[in-house]
Amino acid sequence: MSEAKPLQAEVGGGLDGLYRRYAAWLNRRLRARIGPDDAADVVQETYIRIAPFADGGIAHPRAFLLRVALNLVRDDAKHRRRRPSDADLQSPESEGAPQFDQVLLAQIIRSMPQLYRDVFVLSRFDGMTYPEIAKELEISVKTVEWRMSKALDYCALRLDL
């Protein structure tokens, strides 16, 4: 097994050298997944995120860069699924999307076990705090927290988050 050399020995040091050597490669790798415009943005964000690590030398720069970039893509996808932009909500092709999401969420909540559903509905729809729910249902706050965790896991699993 060969020993990895620090980046500074291969090209100009630090972030500049890392960018010059791998930015085009990373951009090509990301284009297939997310398209050219988004790929360029993710490449830039990747280098911003790795800046604190660039001076210390990175043993496996391609693996490190690709992992950071893919994490950014994954995080962005999660964010978009959870909070659609105003443009997405107002576009003609997605007019039915909010209604579909509401119907899907209602079905998921109805299929949820009663113990979890009670806590979930009181918290999310009635705006009650955990101590208020605990008092209402005559259970401990810890039990409320546990049931809420299970309810959120239940929803996330069915929404494929």
Rank of each mutant, 00 (worst) to 15 (best):
P36F: 03
A151W: 00
L70P: 00
R81E: 10
Q102H: 13
S140Y: 07
E145L: 11
I109R: 02
Q90L: 15
I48P: 01
L137Y: 05
I109T: 13
R110C: 08
R21W: 05
W25S: 07
L152F: 05
E95C: 08
Y154Q: 01
L152S: 00
L66I: 11
G56T: 06
L89M: 15
I50E: 07
M148C: 09
A151M: 08
R29E: 11
S2E: 11
A32D: 12
R20S: 10
A151I: 05
I108M: 08
A106P: 00
K78D: 05
P36W: 05
P98W: 11
D75R: 13
V121M: 12
R147K: 15
A134N: 05
R80S: 04
G14N: 03
N71E: 12
P52D: 07
S111E: 15
A39S: 14
S111F: 06
L15W: 04
E132H: 05
L70H: 03
A106Q: 15
L18Q: 01
H79E: 12
K78Y: 12
I58R: 01
E10L: 15
L159Q: 08
E45C: 06
E132R: 13
K150E: 12
Q44Y: 03
Q102N: 12
P61S: 05
F125Q: 15
P52L: 07
Q99H: 12
I50K: 04
I133R: 01
